[in-house]
Amino acid sequence: MNISGNTIFIPGSTSGIGLALALALQAKGNQVIVGGRRTDALDRIAAEHPGLDTVRIDTADPASIAAAAKEVLERHPELNVLVTMAGIMRAEDWHRPEGFLETAAETFETNVLGPIRLIGAFIEHLQTRPDATIMTVTSGLAFTPLRITPSYNASKAAIHMLSESIRLQLADTTVKVVELQPPSVQTALMPGHESDPHAMPLDDYVAEAVGLIESQPDATEIQVERVKFLRYGEARGDYDRVVAVLNGTEPLNT
């Protein structure tokens, strides 16, 4: 993905990594469209950040995705980058069905079906552009499980394999598939996470990630250094230790 000269739609970018990434990419010379459910947040973002366009979208609602795609393409027919940012992360207890069934369904609706439907809404258009990119968003937890979030871990693992697979299918088109793999980052994805001392500061994460996009335009996975501990545990042969460290049963410096 080229770092500048794009028109980029980022659903799920009214806060956290999504908004920080939108602003960083705008600063690199891209037209960026921010998508989100809350019109008050979209209005505030438009007022505070001139040049950003905004579109209301609920990625858990197929009709909302279809309407937003139509609106985005009418206003920005040059769109060539889709970033499937929207996602939810919730703790679950799998000892009893009421501890996970509803949350699991909501997680897969948003984190798996949402990106699939977004790609479906834009894929034909993207193939008409001379240089297009689909950027999926996974997590270090796609590769190493956090005990309290089974469905989130599984949803991100699914998107990782989806990214690998559609990259193969779209190899005969102008559409690249890039996977953004954040580590734990200080955002509001879960309660109290903004101040978690074990998570990476948001500004540091986005600066490093955008730097990698700029320096490695042909990369298929955007991995800051901090996520590699989780990403490559199995390849290094220390997967069991990585799982233990992540879940607090073993200290990092052993």
Rank of each mutant, 00 (worst) to 15 (best):
I3A: 15
S4K: 11
F9R: 04
F9L: 12
P11I: 00
S13A: 15
T14V: 05
G16W: 05
A20E: 14
L21Y: 01
A27K: 14
R37E: 13
R44M: 11
A46P: 07
A47D: 14
L52A: 09
D53R: 14
D53E: 15
A63L: 08
S64Q: 08
I65P: 07
A69K: 12
E71D: 15
V72F: 08
R75T: 06
H76I: 02
H76D: 06
E78Q: 15
L79W: 09
L82M: 08
G87Y: 00
D93H: 09
D93W: 05
H95T: 15
F100P: 12
T103Y: 01
E106I: 01
L118M: 15
L118C: 12
L118Q: 14
L118F: 05
I123Q: 15
H125Y: 06
P130Y: 02
D131P: 03
D131C: 12
V137D: 08
V137P: 09
A142M: 09
Y152R: 09
I159P: 12
H160I: 00
E164N: 13
I166C: 08
V177C: 10
V178D: 11
P183L: 05
S184F: 11
H193T: 01
D196H: 04
P197K: 13
M200N: 10
E208P: 01
E208L: 01
G211T: 05
I213V: 13
S215P: 00
Q216R: 15
D218P: 05
A219N: 08
E221V: 10
Q223V: 08
K228F: 05
K228V: 04
F229W: 10
Y232P: 00
G233E: 04
G237C: 12
D238Q: 04
R241F: 10
V243S: 03
V245R: 11
L246S: 02
